[in-house]
Each structure stands twice: as C-alpha cells, then as structure tokens.
Write a protein that binds this DNA or RNA. Structure first.
Length: 587
RNA sequence: GACCCCGUAGCUCAACCGGAUAGAGCACUUGCCUUCUAAGCAAGGGGUUGCGUGUUCGAGUCACGCCGGGGUCGCCA
C-alpha cells in the first residue's frame, strides 16, 4: 500500500510528464490551507522557474489533464500557480476500507531487508539515572519502535558505560576506604566473594565522592588513572570488583528502564569489546593508520576543506589506557561483524557531536564500518526554568525514578478528583495512573523537536489536558468504549463511508499515517508522529462530538461509523505504540 | 578565537523540498453534560518569526553581517 499523498503524487507527476516536464514537479502534499483544499501541488511554480515560463499556464495544462480523471472532486488553480486538489468522498472511503483491511494499516516498508543497530540509553555504571537520561531513553526507544514498524530489522544496544576512568575512580576510592581489602591484595589469587561488597546506594555515594576527590587533587586523579589502566590490563582483584559494580548497576538500571517501558536487545557495555581492541590496534598500526602523536596513539581524521580544526581520534593514552573513542570504534567492528547493518544510529546528547564526527571519520578512513552508514541523531539539552540543568529543591539532580513517581502520583490525584475510578479495583487504578503518568512524560518529551534544547517543566509533565499524552489515550479509550458497547448491542461494523465534514477530515487524517511514519523515519523525528497522533485524536473528538454513533437509526450508517471508530482506534494504537504509550481499557 | 545548535504569541512548543492568511497547547473571555467518558467540543482576543542586508515571483526557512543564549575544541565520558 502507498499513502494517498504518494498515490496523488504519482498521478500528478504523470500529468507533468505528459506536458513534457519533469515528473519531480508532481509532488503532492496535504494542503497548508485546509479551508481551500485537501491537497496541493506547488510544482508548477518550480517548473515555471526552470523553464522560464508562466506558472499559471503550466498549472492550467496540468490541471486540465487531472480533471479528466475520476479521482478528483475538485481541481483548482490558485494564487501564483498552486494546484489545489480535493479527492472524491467515494475515493476516500475506498482507501479507508483498504487501510482497515491491511493489518499493517499501510505502514511503509522502507526497511524491508535492512538492518539497523541503534545505540541509545548510554547509562553509566554506578551513576543513578537522572532526568537528563530521559531523552535518550525515550527518543531512542521511540526510534527503535518506529524503524521496526517500518519493517527494519532492529538491534538496540544500551551501550553501558562500564570501562572508563570512572571505574578506576571507584576502585581507588574503595581501596582507600579499605572496606573490601581482599580485592586489593596482590597476593590473593581468588576466588573472590560472590556477594558484592557494595550496593547501588553505596555506589551512588562513592562515585560522586571519588569524582570530587580527583577533581580537587591531581594525585588522586593519577591514582584513578593507574587503577583504570590496571583494570583494563586484567588485574584479577580489580576485575572481580568491577564485575560486582556492573551487576549491581544493571539491576538498578533495568528497573528504571522497565518502569518506562523501554527495552534493549543488547546490554553490551564498552568492556564487552575490550578483546577486540588489541587486534584492531595491531591491524591499524600495520596499515599505517594508527600513528604516534605526543606520546599517544591516534588516527588522524582531519580532511582537506575542513572549516574547523579536527583533532585526531585518540586510541591509546600515553599511559596505555583506552578511551571511549577506542571502544566506540571497536564496537563498530563488533556490530559490523555480527549484524552487518545498513545503518548505525547513535541517539546521544548533541554535545557529543564532535566526538562522533571523529569516530565516524576514523571508521570510514579505516574501512572498519563496512557498508554501514554511521549517524549521530543528537538531542538538545534539558534545562530547568532558569536555563540551567534541572535540580530538585534540595539542590541535587532529580532522579528519573522520582520523576516517574511524581507523574504517577499526579495521575492518581487526577483520577480521585474526577471520581471516575473510585469503584475500580485498586490494582486497575494504579495501572491507569502509571500508564497516564508515563504517557504525559513521554509525549511532553517526544513532541519537542529532537535538537532543540528544552526547558524541563514539571507542571508540563504532569498536565493531562490539551496537547498531551493523556488526551490521546482518552480519545482511544472513548472509542474503545463505543466499540465495546456496540458489541454488547450486537451492532456490526462495516467499511467507513464519508458523509459529513467531520468524517471527511477524520478519514483524510487516517490516510496520512504512512506519510507521517515515513517522514518521522527520514528525519529521525518523533515529534512528527506526536503531531500526527494529536491531529488524529482531535479529528476524532470533533467527529465524536458531532455525531452520536450508537443511537444512529440508519443501520448502514451506524455500521460504517463503527468501522471508522475501529480504524481510528487501530491507528491511534499503532502510533501510540510507536511512541511507547500504552492505552488503558478505561480511564 | 574557530566551529556546532538555538532565538517564533504572556508561557511551553510546531511549521514537510523556500509557497497562499506563521499554527497548536497552556493561561485568559464566552457558550455546551437528562443519548456513546466534559482528561472533551465550539467560539474569541493575543505575532514587525532577535536585528539588518542580500538572493527570489515568493523567506520563519537560503546567504552574509551583527546581537543574545547554550555547547564543543587530544589524552574525562
């Protein structure tokens, strides 16, 4: 199935071609002026520019050819040469029927036969997740769902930060405290205890203390560096301690991602590619691509024509330890070997753009990335109302766990106020509150364009009216409710028809699904889907307010409207599913 | 200093390849629950798109220059 806009583009393109003009001018899009037409084509203006001709004349010739077809209810030329198009109600209803009959609802298949590796999350061992981690988790999860929906084979990887200097900082801090001496006893050959000497709470306290100490005292930093190098060199006690850190952290992280409904196919860490590093470096040295510079081993990535200085990618520090560019490069080697992807997407803070530029250049130069296109889908920073990173009143960074709890609490309050769920079982009430809270959170984040910095506003994340996640859920819930009642009454559904302005608008919106999914994939932009879903819910709510469905006496019309409800709820469910938003049975 | 991102309504954000009258939500004003859930629907006010110049039939969008905010710039991640 193709989208209606794509179908119209093909028809209009053929008309341009028949006039001896390039078919590329036949692009049709939803109209910017819905009051004037459903669709528009601006190609006559561009064609006129190229051919140095009169745009209205070109538009007229194309329009004359279009008028001959049965598809259009209206073909008009407006302004300097826009071609405005309305499709017949019969054609709209027919497309809606076809969409209902397709279990993919006409979703694009841009990824058929292609593999995507998507890297997001990127939490660090021993550091609790705070609101800053929200964006990578939510945007990354949405993109993996979107690519899957568009028929890509998707492999997602949390890419745990478990192999850098911070590990050395933790180890040296614990060594100084003397709370787990067995791991530091060089004479001890193991085995080491199964029980972790630290809990997640311990780590959350130890890491900031260690980081602060290293910042204040160069000697401490040097000590942490040495510990990092020894860990990476395989010192048994350090490795055993490190395994505890990772295990303890993974449990905590998993809990937080689960509460957001975010999942990963792989829980690989930077450390998992460590065995690949030595051979990779040997290979790069042999090929003359890794060279020594200022005591470190680097890959030069500057290219002629660079506007800015492009420092080399550091593979090995002068003390022999690896850096995150090194593990990133080795991770590419690993992913190419295992999955041979068409695309590797990194959903990481935009501030790391420069780093990825270096890594990608190095990967291409060394041909380690195979056929894969490497792309950084960055996102903007989340700030507080004062333009600085969001803090709690106590001054600490707000933890993700607490944020989720707050949105859920607000949803509980809302349910109590509305008095709707008073008679529901407590379990269901909790479930609704959780789904509504998460929906508010995710939609508020995803509806912003990926790259803009945005202001974290707790009130916004706990808002349930207007352009919010709960509004979308509410539209779906009301539709489900109608369908349930219709079933109780024994009313059957039939293919949709278009007999009113509200139905026309709703069907047009429904038919826009494939286009929205394709555009969102192209731009890696969840906000396009948010916009689509919101407009769909709005179109439905208008239809709902205007036409009473179950009391409709005309049985055929009632059946057609039930069919329209069915398609609406299926479409909403599909888009909300991609956004990672669950729909309660009732709310 | 160089480079990257951003600047749109009181607030938070949109605007697909340069298109017509720059759109939503919140907040504000006013209607609508004795037939499907009012977390809703309908209507209204609110804009020199930071400033300037240029390209174009046409600029929030492209180019250049300012102003303002954020970020990055070899051994942190």
């Amino acid at each position: 199935m193709t989208s209606l806009a794509a179908e119209l583009s093909a028809v209009v393109s053929a008309a341009f071609a028949a006039e001896g003009l390039s078919a590329k001018f036949g692009q049709v899009q939803a109209s910017d002026r819905p009051d004037l037409a459903q669709f528009q084509c601006n190609g006559a203006l561009a064609a006129a520019k190229e051919a140095k001709a009169n745009p209205r004349q070109i538009a007229q010739k194309v329009a004359d050819r279009l008028k001959a077809g049965p598809l259009f209810a209206k073909v008009e030329i407006a302004g300097p040469g826009f071609i405005n198009l309305d499709v017949t109600d019969a054609a709209l209803a027919e497309r809606a029927g076809a969409m209902s009959a397709d279990d993919r609802l006409g979703a694009p298949e841009t990824g058929r036969g292609k593999t995507l590796v998507i890297d997001f999350g990127g939490p660090n061992v021993a550091k609790p997740m705070h609101v800053g981690h929200l964006r990578s988790a939510i945007i990354g999860d949405c993109l993996q769902r979107l690519f899957r929906a568009n028929a890509w084979t998707v492999v997602s990887d949390v890419h745990l930060g478990d192999w850098g200097l911070q590990m050395g900082q933790l180890i040296s801090e614990i060594g100084r405290r003397g709370t787990a001496p067995v791991y530091f006893d060089a004479a001890c050959k193991g085995p080491y205890p199964d029980e972790s000497p630290v809990t997640m709470d311990d780590l959350e306290e130890i890491y900031p203390a260690a980081a602060a100490a290293c910042k204040a005292d160069p000697a401490r930093l040097e000590e942490a560096r040495r510990a990092t190098a020894e860990l990476q060199a395989g010192r048994p006690g350090y490795l055993a301690l490190w395994r505890h850190f990772v295990k303890v952290s993974e449990r905590g992280l998993n809990r937080e991602y689960s509460s957001l409904g975010v999942t990963f196919d792989l829980w690989n860490g930077e450390a998992s590619v460590d065995p690949l590093i030595a051979p990779m470096i040997e290979d790069l040295k042999r090929r003359g691509l890794a060279v020594e510079s200022e005591g470190a081993l680097v890959i030069e990535v500057a290219e002629p024509g660079d506007k800015k200085e492009m420092p080399p990618l550091l593979l090995l520090k002068s003390d022999g330890a690896v850096l995150y560019g090194t593990t990133d490069l080795a991770t590419i080697v690993d992913r190419v070997k295992h999955y041979d992807p068409e695309l590797i997407l990194y959903v990481v803070d935009q501030r790391q753009h420069g780093h990825f530029e270096q890594v990608f250049r190095a990967a291409r130069k060394t041909q380690l990335s195979g056929k894969a296109i490497l792309e950084h889908a960055g996102f903007g920073t989340m700030n507080g109302a004062d333009g600085k990173p969001f803090k709690t009143r106590a001054g600490g960074v707000m933890k993700l766990y607490d944020l989720i709890a707050m949105t859920t609490d607000e949803a509980q309050k809302r349910l109590a106020e509305a008095g709707i769920a008073g008679d529901y079982p407590e379990e269901e009430r909790n479930d609704i509150a959780r789904k509504v809270g998460i929906a508010a959170l995710k939609f508020a984040d995803l509806s912003n364009y990926r790259l803009t910095d945005y202001i974290f506003d707790l009130a916004r994340f706990t808002r349930f009216e207007g352009k919010t996640g709960p509004y979308l859920q509410y539209a779906a819930v009301r539709t489900q409710s109608i369908l349930r009642k219709a079933e109780d009454e024994g009313f059957a559904a039939a293919a949709p028809v278009v007999r009113s302005p509200e139905e026309r608008a709703l069907v047009l919106q429904l038919l826009g699904l494939p286009g929205a999914m394709e555009a969102a994939e192209d731009k890696r932009a969840p906000n396009i889907l948010c916009e689509y879903a919101f407009e769909l819910a709005q179109s439905f709510s208008r239809f709902y307010a205007e036409h009473h469905i179950l009391s409709e006496q005309d049985a055929d019309l009632r059946a057609a409207r039930l069919g329209l409800c069915r398609l609406t709820v299926d479409t909403l469910a599909k888009v909300l599913g991609i956004l990672g938003i669950e729909i309660p049975q009732r709310m």
